[in-house]
Design a protein around this nucleic acid. Structure first.
Lengths: 177, 177
DNA sequence: TTGACAAGACCGTCCAGCCGGTACAGTAAG
DNA sequence: CTTACTGTACCGGCTGGACGGTCTTGTCAA
């Protein structure tokens, strides 16, 4: 029975992220992803001929989503700078108690080189931020603090209370100017 | 052939960290660790009856080393606060280009619960820092920025130049007061 | 001699990737 | 319209290899 067909690719990507988040990054097997996506293993391998390709797909869609979200925020009224847009976006991202990107650990285990595009992306973002700021010290502090926020969220080790989180964000926005 | 004596436990722990760093966290197998440590698989399993125990040993020795290093720094002259000791210690740790703790990724893949002691440790450290500061906002920014520094080092994605790194540290120390 | 410690062959499990099918859509000749 | 052919999307059993953990057999120090 052939269901008309939704875009299997995106369903698979979402399923992979779900599995990594819920069953742990070590349990991200092709079988688990396929069954979660409502697709057979053969179907999965049809879309992503190899596990590495699946990981790559995860990285790419993550990065492009992030780029889009950041641009959207930056275009909104009320942002004096890309930096403050970045701060607010990250603050919102980290409010979800669930890591949402723990598949990254699976990718690293598969091959650390999957980080390369992410590194490049961060570098580019940092350069962009440097271009619009006059106080490099403040930028560094903000940029790294955001990195810390994201890292804590990723490792699911939120030490901060909700109030502390808010205070942190407002402090960062003040530093960002 | 039995080599006279040497604390196999520590050799094994070091070997595991080396393997994870050099071959990638996904390649941390018992066989690899044993051969790297110059020990047979049986010998490895004698010291750590299970892979999980090995990971646990890694976490524990990491944490106790860190605790010792922090206490030593805090006891040194020239530190007004534990926070500044923590900043300087982390800055030094992150100057090594090599992650040194990528075994953490293997541990997470094995079982995310291995993070629990680390979370607890961080929470405790944070409470300790809160006890000696009067400006919570500044503490939050510093604490998270250090977290970001460590995270970048761990992911081997150092976006910062050496000068920027130094500027960051001095900015943090200034904020810490 | 005895027991702490180590060696490495071996076993069961798990998983990525492969392969031989199946269902269906489009096209086009008869 | 129908039959035959082609390409696309998907299915699921299989297998070979890797890995964690066990077991038997040493080996040295006391």
């Amino acid at each position: 029975m052939r269901v008309p067909r939704a875009n299997s690719r995106e369903k698979i990507l979402a399923a992979a992220a779900d599995v990594a988040r819920e069953a742990g990054p070590g349990s991200l097997s092709l079988d688990a992803v396929a069954s979660r996506a409502g697709v057979s293993k053969g179907g999965l391998l049809y879309n992503f001929p190899t596990k590495a390709k699946l990981m790559q797909g995860l990285v790419e869609s993550y990065l492009s989503d992030f780029q889009k979200a950041l641009d959207a925020r930056a275009a909104e009224a009320g942002h004096e700078s890309v930096l403050s847009a970045y701060i607010k976006l990250s603050a919102d991202d980290c409010e979800q108690p669930k890591p949402s990107a723990s598949w990254i650990f699976s990718a690293i285990a598969e091959d650390p080189d999957f980080l390369t595009p992410i590194k490049a992306f961060k570098h580019q973002l940092f350069e962009r931020l440097k271009g619009e700021t006059q106080d490099l010290g403040s930028l560094l502090v903000c940029f790294l603090a955001i990195e810390g926020m994201r890292s804590m969220n990723l490792f699911d080790s939120d030490v901060l209370s909700e109030d502390e989180h808010k205070l942190l964000v407002s402090s960062l926005l003040k530093i960002a100017g």
